[in-house]
């Protein structure tokens, strides 16, 4: 015989489960439904007409002025290109720095750590505001170069921390063993350190890529109105065209969830939550 207490606990468990599912998936369902809702009259719980015409329009497969949405393909390609360049630049700065922090006894190390931690400790929006006035003087405001520099700033700090903890995890005795059998430091790095660090460096690159793809605030200040990335296209659409904004939302959500769930095991929890 199951006791009364058991049934009480089971029903509480079930309540938590149902409530969690409703709250977790309600907003996502709303986004998904709006992305395919062609007719949705209040107060019906579901759209009257479902279809992919906003998707077709957004992906550039169809041109219809009636819907009022434009192709997001250019913004999408621009976002991807910016993200790729951001990863290349961030990682080529972050890998040497992370390596130095992990494997050398650097003087003024605490000061350097402080410098690399500051961007995560304080709100970044005032930084973007001042970068806008600096970039305006330098002719970088409203340019793709300016946007990439801001994305590198956002990604670099994570890049440095992730790569440096990756390099720290590689035991020094492995490198010393290679050196003792005659490998020079370059060979030891290329044949021992780099292959062992590869998963961490890859995770870090993926993370920087997603951070750039999803970056909004920096691009808002530096890029607008001339450089339009996917998140900014979402923003401009959100006030006027719910379906179109939802299509872009789904398009941004999918790579974020897929890539982040792939790499999250390799990353410290606080990095994963720090995006957006």
């Amino acid at each position: 015989m199951k006791s009364k207490k058991y049934y009480f606990k089971f029903s509480m468990d079930l309540l938590l489960f149902v409530l969690s599912l409703l709250i977790l998936f309600g907003p996502m369902l709303s986004l998904a439904l709006w992305s395919v809702a062609e007719q949705w009259y209040w107060p019906n719980l579901l759209p009257q007409k479902v279809g992919f015409s906003y998707w077709a329009q957004a992906l550039g497969l169809k041109m219809s002025f009636a819907i009022g949405a434009v192709s997001i393909v250019p913004a999408f390609l621009r976002s991807i290109a910016i993200a790729v360049v951001t990863v290349v630049i961030s990682m080529s700065i972050a890998i040497p720095a992370g390596y130095a922090l992990a494997k050398f006894k650097v003087p003024f190390a605490s000061l350097l750590l402080l410098l690399f931690l500051m961007p995560n400790a304080f709100p970044q929006q005032p930084i973007f505001v001042n970068l806008l006035s600096i970039f305006t003087k330098w002719g970088l405001a409203g340019t793709v170069t300016g946007v990439i520099l801001v994305h590198v700033l956002v990604g670099l700090v994570y890049g440095i921390w992730i790569t440096s903890s990756t390099f720290k995890a590689i035991p020094n005795h492995l490198i010393e063993a290679a050196r003792s059998v005659g490998a020079d430091s370059r060979t030891a790095f290329l044949k021992i350190t780099l292959p062992l660090a590869a998963p961490g460096l890859l995770a870090s690159s993926v993370f920087v890529f997603i951070t750039s793809l999803d970056e909004f605030t920096g691009t808002f200040f530096i890029g607008l109105p001339f450089v339009n990335t996917l998140p900014l296209t979402l923003y401009s659409a959100s006030g006027t065209n719910m379906q179109f904004a939802s299509v872009i939302g789904v398009l941004l959500l999918i790579p974020s969830i897929i890539f982040m769930s792939l790499v999250q095991k390799l990353l410290k929890a606080e990095y994963v939550g720090g995006m957006g």
Binding site: L33, A245, L253
Partner: peptide, 25 residues
């Protein structure tokens, strides 16, 4: 519970925009 962590704020904002609207779900 991991899912929302991976979703960027801009998409969360759009979700909430439609979900919480006076005529929202």
């Amino acid at each position: 519970y991991r899912i929302p962590i991976f979703i960027p704020f801009v998409v969360v904002a759009q979700m909430m925009n439609s979900f919480l609207a006076p005529h929202g779900i």
